[in-house]
Design a protein around this nucleic acid. Sequence first.
RNA 1: GCUCUGGUGGUGUAGUCCGGCCAAUCAUAUCACCCUCUCACGGUGAUGACCAGGGUUCGAAUCCCUGCCGGAGCACCA
Length: 494
Amino acid sequence: MEAEDEGDDQVLPDLPNADDYDEVRMRAAPNPNGPWHIGHARMPAVIGTYKDLYDGSFVLRYDDTDPETKRPDLEAYDAILEDVHYLGFEPDEVITASDRMETYYDHAREVIEMGGAYTCSCSGEAFSELKNAGEPCPHRGKDVETTREEFEAMVDGEYSSGEMVLRIKTDIEHKNPALRDWVAFRMVDTPHPRPEAEDYRAWPMLDFQSGVDDHLTGVTHIIRGIDLQDSAKRQQFLYDYFGWDYPEVVHWGHVQVDAYDVKMSTSTLKEKIDAGELDGWDDPRAPTLKSLRRRGIRGSAVVDAMLELGTSTSDVDLSMSAIYANNRDIVDDESDRYFFVRDGERFAVEGGPDAGHPALHPDHEERGDRTVPVTGGVVVEPDDVPAEGDRTWLKGYGCVRREGDALVHTDDSIEVVRSGDVDVVHWAPAEDNVTVRMRTMEGDVTGVAEPDFADTDADDVVQFERLGFVRVDGHDGDSRDADGDESVVYWAHK
RNA sequence: GCUCUGGUGGUGUAGUCCGGCCAAUCAUAUCACCCUCUCACGGUGAUGACCAGGGUUCGAAUCCCUGCCGGAGCACCA
């Protein structure tokens, strides 16, 4: 398959040996132990894009084979699928490893019959010592019959955790100790959280489960992190037993994201949420996809930033500014403008018209303008308050001069702004305005917005002029973060 | 200790396989100016990088060697 030539738009490198396959097929294989953080977006972003590029397909596979240490979170299965949708992709197939236990057992039995595996009751430490010395453990020479029986006993749950494992026989003297006789199945006493899988006790390890599934689901290209660099080499032994061809593999480094105080790790996030330090997975301070979505950042802005990272094996730092720049590009044109004033200082306005009429969008006059009344006085941010006797330009209204507690309308034309003599500021009515809570990564900010802001809908992204873009979460107390009947917005970026 | 694997401006990336067109691409960032009734958008310009040292060569980001620094695996986690 040739990559569709989309000109220079393709930011990703070509997949290795793509034309050796009828169809490029990939997989995302997350452990469903929580909603996704930003870093998780890389996998669907890249394989989803390759899918489009090569007219291929991808499988979403939940690798939920550790009921204990990386215990699956039942809500995460759907949460992850939602996150994939948010990013703009649709898996061609969704499968769950814990549904496929019999398949793994059957394949284990096959390997056992071939003499490619043996049950082992060595303690982890004891085996490790032998392995590091390049020496086989006493169980390695077991006959097939014994291994067969002991494996069935494992499947039947007759051992407890730590008592028995099934090892794949590789090369006990392999120069890389990481590849020597690795564990394929182990006992786990804790029942799996999914009712469908709660009776299983003998669980496959990633290298076995993933290796079998990749082949059985027709995966041609595996993309994964450098932490799994040795996996392909381990699994190669398994593939050799079965006579399978190993898929093409691309390894990439880890991603760090700047701008967050909170560590980008599912378990850390879970702890912070449980401890009440974060309001939830979509807290603006959380580096999660749910948080970005709530802040009005489009999935494609995240995807594009991920694609720009490429697939190099070195660790990379993702700048949130890259995501913001992409998002600004998307939302700037569609976002209507409104005034929002924090910590406003109140002034009466004297001598001018009753209201200002700034445009909803400077590039789209056809959208009309807003009506911002001044008759009940206005509020201006402290930094924007002119010194006594100085002028300022209330955007969309006109020029005023500070006279004590009043802003007196002058008849200056816009020329005073063009010449640079007078600054333009945003402002809001002191009465009949909209109380707004703005949730940001640094905490909540409160203030008031102009009345027309109430016309926006939840989920709209608007720009608070001179401040930045926000997503409307709800008006009149509709947001779950609202205190009383205030409106709530989530800060996106400047 | 053993085994993998990397190191291009603040960040990411192109170029590295097949040395010259690289006084190094593009994006983002930062700054300045222009535009503008926003500190947005748009435009122009500037800043800023080949880890270090040797070697091969007429010529090295690219090949070789050494060193330095980093990441990963050696789990009954994924």
